[in-house]
Simulated assay, not measured.
Amino acid sequence: MAKPHFSFWIIAGLGLVWNLMGCLNFITQMNADAVAKMPELYQLIISSRPLWATLAFGLAVFGGAVGCILLLLRRDMARIALLVSLVAILLTVGQTISAVGLAPSTILALLVGAALFWYSSIVYRAGWLR
């Protein structure tokens, strides 16, 4: 198995931090008191989100965190976890756009999710995952 370039550890680590922040965001949004203190737009997004979209949001961030942990462990299952996360991101972004319109944060989440999945495919082909 080929040894990864040092940038691999940086990208996988930053991806994990990004997804852990998403996990914290998800947990915060499950707390009614915390939601009540948020700006009105965020309250609207959260209150109008159906159960399936909430589940997709959780799957997106927790699946992304698991995928990045698997990347750091150099396991090829990281690709599957990051693909599941990307599909869940697409569902979440679609619902958010239909509820409140396009927001920069939704585009950023989609770009980061797609980039992490793409990167996992590259490092798999490079022989860095087992």
Rank of each mutant, 00 (worst) to 15 (best):
A36F: 05
Q29C: 07
Q43K: 11
R49I: 02
T28H: 03
I27C: 04
L24P: 03
L44P: 03
N31D: 15
A36N: 12
N19Q: 09
M30R: 12
M38H: 05
N19C: 04
V35P: 08
P39G: 07
M38S: 08
D33S: 15
A36Y: 08
Q43R: 11
M38L: 10
M21L: 15
R49W: 07
C23K: 10
A34L: 14
M38K: 09
L44N: 11
A36H: 05
N19H: 09
T28F: 06
E40P: 09
D33Q: 10
N25I: 03
P39C: 00
A36T: 09
L41T: 07
N19K: 02
A53F: 03
I27M: 11
L41N: 07
S48A: 14
L41E: 08
S48I: 01
A53H: 01
L44V: 14
M21R: 04
Y42R: 02
A32S: 14
N31H: 12
W52V: 01
M38G: 00
F26R: 04
W18L: 01
A34E: 13
A34W: 07
W18I: 03
A36D: 11
Y42E: 08
P50S: 08
K37P: 02
N19P: 02
S48P: 04
A36W: 04
Q29S: 12
M30L: 12
D33T: 10
L24M: 11
E40A: 14
N25A: 13
E40I: 14
Q29F: 13
N25P: 00
N25F: 13
N25Q: 10
E40V: 15
C23E: 11
T28A: 13
L44C: 07
V35Q: 00
F26N: 05
M21E: 09
A36P: 08
N31S: 09
G22S: 03
V35C: 12
T28K: 10
W18C: 00
I27S: 04
S48R: 10
M21S: 06
I46M: 03
A53E: 00
L24A: 15
C23F: 15
W18S: 03
R49P: 01
S47C: 04
N31C: 14
N31V: 13
K37W: 03
M38Q: 14
S47P: 02
T28C: 04
L24W: 12
L51R: 02
T28D: 11
I45D: 02
T28E: 06
C23Y: 08
M30Y: 07
N31T: 13
L20P: 10
N25S: 11
L44Y: 08
A34S: 15
A53R: 02
Y42L: 06
A36Q: 10
Q29E: 10
A32L: 09
G22D: 01
E40D: 11
N19E: 09
W52Q: 00
C23S: 13
I27A: 10
E40R: 09
